[in-house]
Design a protein around this nucleic acid. Structure first.
Length: 506
RNA sequence: GGGCGCGUAGCUCAAUGGCAGAGCAGUGGCCUUUUAAGCCAUUGGUUAAGGGUUCGAGCCCCUUCGCGCUCACCA
């Protein structure tokens, strides 16, 4: 390690402490109370009129000190909040007061024991009878001072450079309480999703992340290699094909929450690894899944936010059902004037789009053209929760056809805040149809080998044993957390977002 | 990958092409109820890296690195 001037000073303090027989990193902590508990115990004693002193042992990070000669005030921060400490020479003696002033720095983890009282200004405070170092901080925290405004801690000049915040997320978390809150919310969202599905008889399962054949989505995979098997493996791009195999096996309602990996570009709403929820439900269909989606997201919002309304990107969003439901064909007619049913092949749709001055890559297949249209003209307009439904068959190889309409499948995507959040369909369970779809996809994507939807023979074999009719659902958890925490960048809701390696890391 | 922008002290930020600065943090003092405590003094810089133009570059030009925004890509 290379230490800067500030750090060298603290290293000297460590030497000084050790020379005095004091261990700056003791093995045991004797902390018994959180800051919040200490305050609560004192308030209870006050309320009951007890004359008994409230004695506590608290511990936390030193966040502020106010040294005033023969007395000193300090604030420590722990997981539960902040607590003011009061040091006085009368109780501690001259040498301990000096030790506090000389050896203790902002950022150190310290332990303090004593009795609770109220200062003249009314702040509930620990009168310190004894204190010690729990863990010396060598590197100063990247933050200036705290201020309490209306009961909220405002931290001044705190770490704000996004690169530093992501590279040193530990420092970001240590210094920015609102960042810690994002990840508490994230955990609460996942916990609520589990509770919702568990209560409805879903079984949580784990399927392979390393897969010999990737599938369930159209994306370039990450490739890795198993040495002993002498075999290349892919990091999964979706869970879909494995979860549906379980329906064949008689697990009628399954879900998985986990990581997907897609070797694609990053953006404010794309990360190469992201967290996905997928569930599959026997005897459901895309309409019943739509209802369940509304119910599930309201449940999550109620539990996590205590509200069905929230602000995202300057929009007041309301999750209260029923959500708007837009037929894809009708939506496109309204937004673009193009009726996709009148243009049944690549060339005719491309021609009409060109006549309207729309931009797209030449030679794009019809399905992808339609996807471009909805991405450009519909998705950004779906601010309030909206289901877009009935997708073209040729971009939905795992969805079941709509009865009486062979070009359309029973599929919907849910949008909130102008962003795709989830994707669901009545799952295709006809193995012969499925085989035909794989072959069609093989043709459409032949030009671009990496994006090709590979044939999965074993998946077809599974389906050939008989798969119950079912509805399936996939949702990006990161995006849901973005919405519920009001962050427009996916990196804000991922603890350690990927960054390029730097030449010299300190 | 393309375009635009940014990178200055530990942190947050200043600085017409003309002496690299402030606040906080740090260091040394004073201070027995403070709370962004206060007062006095003070340390701290390869201005991301490298090259160029210029009497003179943090500032202008080129290259490289990193980050952000955006476009492309991403059913």
């Amino acid at each position: 390690m290379e230490w800067n001037e500030l750090e060298k000073i603290r290293l000297e303090k460590i030497s000084r402490m050790r020379a005095a027989g004091i261990e700056p990193y003791p093995t045991r902590s004797d902390v018994k109370h959180s800051s919040a508990e200490a305050v609560r115990l004192f308030e209870e004693a006050e309320r009951s009129g007890s004359t008994q002193l409230v004695e506590v042992i608290v511990g936390g990070r030193l966040r502020a000190t106010r040294l005033m000669g023969k007395i000193a005030f300090a604030h420590i921060e722990d997981g539960a909040g902040r607590l003011q400490l009061f040091f006085r020479i009368n109780e501690l003696g001259e040498s301990e007061m000096k030790r506090f002033a000389e050896d203790f720095d902002l950022g150190d983890f310290i332990e303090a024991r004593g009795t609770m009282f109220r200062t003249r200004t009314g702040e509930i405070t620990l009168q310190v009878a004894a204190f010690r170092m729990l863990a010396k901080a060598i590197t100063p925290l990247p933050a200036a001072k705290d201020e309490v405004v209306d009961g909220q801690v405002v931290r001044h000049a705190t770490l704000s450079d996004p690169e530093s915040r992501y590279r040193q997320r530990y420092a970001d978390l240590a210094v920015n309480p609102h960042v810690r809150q994002i990840f508490r919310t994230r955990a609460a969202v996942i916990s609520a999703l589990r509770a919702f599905l568990d209560a409805r008889g879903f079984l949580e399962v784990e399927t392979p992340i390393l897969q010999p054949i990737y599938g369930g989505a159209a994306a370039r995979p990450f490739i890795t290699h198993h040495n002993q098997l002498h075999q290349d493996l892919y990091l999964r791009i979706s869970f879909e094909l494995y979860l549906k195999r379980l329906l064949v096996g008689g697990l009628e309602r399954v879900y998985e929450i986990g990581r997907d990996f897609r070797n694609e570009g990053v953006s404010y709403k794309h990360n190469p690894e992201f967290t996905q929820l997928e569930f599959y439900m026997a005897h459901a269909n895309y309409l019943t899944v739509m209802d369940l989606t509304e119910e599930m997201l309201v449940y999550v919002a109620d539990r996590v936010l205590g509200s069905r309304q929230f602000t995202f990107n300057g929009h007041e969003i309301d999750l209260t059902p029923p959500w708007r439901r837009v037929n894809l064909r009708e939506g496109l007619i309204e937004a673009t004037g193009i009726d996709i049913n009148l243009y049944p092949d690549d060339a005719s749709l491309a021609a009409v789009m060109e006549s309207k001055g729309m931009k797209f890559k030449p030679g794009t297949a019809r399905g992808k053209l339609i996807d471009t249209l909805l991405g450009d003209y519909l998705e950004p307009t779906f601010i309030q929760p909206t289901f877009l439904y009935d997708y073209p068959r040729d971009i939905s190889p795992l969805a079941k056809s709509k009865p009486g309409d062979p070009t359309t499948v029973e599929r919907f995507e849910g949008f909130i805040g102008g962003m795709e959040l989830c994707n669901a369909f009545t799952e295709l369970n006809d193995p012969l149809d499925q085989e035909a779809r794989f072959l069609e996809m093989g043709r459409d994507y032949q030009a671009d080998d990496e994006e090709r939807h590979p044939m999965d023979e074993d998946y077809l074999r599974a389906m050939s044993y008989g798969m119950p009719p079912n509805g399936g659902f996939g949702m990006g958890i990161d995006r849901l957390v973005m919405l519920l925490t009001g962050h427009r960048s996916i990196r804000e809701v991922i603890l350690f977002p990927p960054l390029r390696e730097r030449d010299s890391e300190e």
